[in-house]
Design a protein around this nucleic acid. Sequence first.
DNA 1: CTCCAGGCATGAG
DNA 2: CTCATGCATGGA
Length: 337
Amino acid sequence: MNEIMDIGRCLRSHEGVEARNRVEVLIPVGEFDVEATFESGQCFRWRRVRAGEYIGVIGRSAVHVQQVLQRALTDPLAPLSKARSGKALLVRLMGEMDPQEAEHAVIRYFDLSRDYPAILRRLRRDAAFARVAPRRAGIHILRQDPFEVVISFIISANNHIPRIRRILERLCARYGEAIRTPFGLVYTFPRPEVLAEARLADLRERCGLGYRDRYVWRTARAIAECSDFASWSEWPTPILRRRLLELDGVGEKVADCILLFGFHRLDAFPVDTWIARAMRELYFSDRMPRVREIRACAVERFGAYAGVAQQYLYAAFRARGRVARPSREAATAEEAL
DNA sequence: CTCCAGGCATGAG
DNA sequence: CTCATGCATGGA
């Protein structure tokens, strides 16, 4: 049984969807930073191939993204001056489409037409925020596929980011469609109907989902059977939020992540352990507030862009926490002093 | 070995 | 309504 499935997988993998057209677009991006955005915890499936270079999927196309200095590209012989050359995004899409729709898809996915520097300036009017947030608006909120975000953040609950990535990788390799690229195979995210047909044991054992197997399966089935999931994006945020909370495995925090990362509701403010710590330190003088209280505080201070503030706070505190967390050796070394 | 991870569902009070 | 508990898994 399993052997047969494995062979089936191999065949499917090697068939792959042949990438016929390759469209290349170069877009000036201002302060946007691919690396900061991809490593900010809002997406899990972009694979880093080099510094500032990633491969992933947008829609049903495999995509290679590279952050470049625009001048270096238009005039390769000109001296590379960081000050005088603007940042740009060189994007190669593998799939059938014309350059114009490719450019539109890229601008939309990376939210490049929004003025993030202006948003950051507005957020930085808050003194506490300004103290810890960066000056440059490197992180954008991506416009990811809603279903992918739903499943991804169900898996994210009580889990580590490296493990979330590996689970999603296996899930897509098993249930998504393979696309051949010069960097190896990449997979589309599985459609709801496909995940709904999966076996629970397969999700648990092969993909490593653990106890979340039934959450993923039930939610995939609910969305597959839901005739109007495509139009959820048109609903007002409070109604959409209530609807998301009905999905199995979706609580308040995950619902807010889905609103922010899947439906681009920039006022949604997911409160996880890191944000709770950050907000507590910044605004509650180290007393432990309720999650409700934290969200209310964020909405009051950051308003329509609370979600953007959240992403910058999350990145700042996580970067700080990783180096600041004392290791066992550091602790004993400290005691030895 | 224990602790923890971008929490959630469940049941008790 | 609030609160406590168990939960698969794997990296630190």
